[in-house]
């Protein structure tokens, strides 16, 4: 049974990757969105000019971009399944529902991370040149991005499964998703800030924010996992 689930998990994930490689739907829309956000940031920050230490607002700015970017991807991720009723064919096959959850979650996580990893250097290139760089080791940013994206994709996969069946799905996902993400975003911004600004004690601060991120991930993933069977069967 376990090996069957693993095989099905891989099949669904591979299918999503193949379709994405072919259409570039999610990556393109998310990537474009990230770049547009930076243009808007430029407008927002331009009058402040040199007076503003961009590093102070950078953690907030990148998480704003990431959270709204993730909405685009999550919305797309169930459109394929719904299009020609594929989700019914998937549910008709002998697959345990949690397998579908983990496969869709993994796909969403991979796409989100890919765009995050691509857009972070662009942000640094556009806003941090000739200024003070990131104080603590850069891999700390990787840790926050990975951990927070797990929470975003986990809760997002559950919510996107619901909102794909509703009228006005794009807006609705934002309405239900963003408030639920508040604690995670708060902690991710806190950790990112500690990593970027540095200073004495910043590493401790970083890890205590990371404990919040990890706690949110564990609790919310367990709940989302528990609720998934009900939601996808409805």
């Amino acid at each position: 049974m376990a090996s069957a689930s693993w095989r099905q998990f891989k099949a669904i994930l591979r299918k999503d990757l193949v379709m994405e490689m072919r259409t570039h739907e999610m990556i393109t829309s998310m990537g474009l969105y990230a770049i547009l956000t930076m243009v808007v940031y430029q407008i927002a920050l331009t009058e402040a000019g040199e007076a503003l230490d961009v590093r102070l607002v950078m953690p907030g700015l990148i998480w704003v971009a990431f959270i709204f970017m993730s909405l685009l991807g999550l919305n797309r991720s169930f459109v394929h399944e719904k299009d020609q009723g594929c989700i019914d064919a998937l549910l008709l096959s002998p697959v345990d529902r949690p397998v579908i959850f983990f496969a869709k979650f993994s796909g969403n996580l991979l796409f989100l991370l890919a765009v995050e990893v691509l857009s972070l250097p662009v942000f640094a290139f556009l806003f941090l040149q000739g200024r003070e760089g990131i104080s603590n080791p850069i891999w700390l940013l990787g840790v926050v991005m990975l951990a927070a994206s797990v929470g975003i994709s986990g809760v997002g996969t559950l919510l996107a499964t619901m909102t794909v069946n509703t009228s006005g799905k794009d807006i609705l996902l934002a309405v239900v998703f963003v408030p639920l993400m508040y604690p995670l975003l708060r902690a991710a911004v806190g950790a990112t800030f500690a990593a970027v600004i540095g200073g004495p004690g910043s590493i401790e601060t970083f890890w205590s924010w990371m404990a919040w991120v990890a706690g949110f991930d564990v609790i919310m993933l367990l709940v989302a996992f528990g609720l998934y069977e009900f939601v996808i069967g409805a």
Binding site: V155, M162, P179, L180, Y182, R186, M220, V223, L227
Partner: peptide, 19 residues
């Protein structure tokens, strides 16, 4: 859907509070 969201929201609220 409403039940699932209600459960998520109820768990989320105290986390928001404590954080």
């Amino acid at each position: 859907y409403a039940s699932a969201f209600g459960i998520l929201a109820f768990i989320d609220a105290p986390i928001s509070f404590f954080i």
